[in-house]
Amino acid sequence: MMKKRRLIVLVLSISILAGTRLALTDTPAGPGLGKPAGEAEITQWDIGIMPDGEGLPPGKGTATEGQAIYEKSCVSCHGPQGLGDSADQLAGAKMGLASEYPEKTIGSYWPYATTLFDMIRRSMPMTAPGTLSNNEVYAVTAYLLFLNGIIEETKVIDAGNLAKIEMPNRNGFINIYELEKNK
């Protein structure tokens, strides 16, 4: 009993020092078996791209370069010009989002251009995910943005400008989590 109380006091004081906001009353102390992760290792592991562009690697590509990669690695599932097949339609939406049969494509639906880089690099192509070089991912991203009429065919896409691209449906979403939290 005494021991448990001392443990709780210890955990509480540690957390006060650390300034965390976690609820601690029921949290037993862990044995601390984690091994420190260095910055270089973390950089290798962290393949995520944030909406402000954080995490975007060096490299660049254009739609023209991307088309060749798309036709080799993507077309069999996503169809010519991203019109969709066994996988999502990516471009060429004719029916609006409020229509009877809405078409959700990158151009009509996706709110952030960074999502493209994040997903293509980590997940695509499905038969050999994670095998495209950073330049190839930038190029395919550029091609898909071009197919959706968002950038010019010759525009060079890189870490400096991808996050700045304004997606047509950027403001098309209602954040239900925030809405309910602020109720």
Partner: peptide, 18 residues
């Protein structure tokens, strides 16, 4: 964003419906 969001009749979509 592209998936696990729910398009509404007015063309807006619900996001983070957790």
């Amino acid at each position: 964003t592209s998936r696990y969001t729910e398009l509404l009749p007015d063309g807006k979509a619900r996001m983070f419906t957790l």
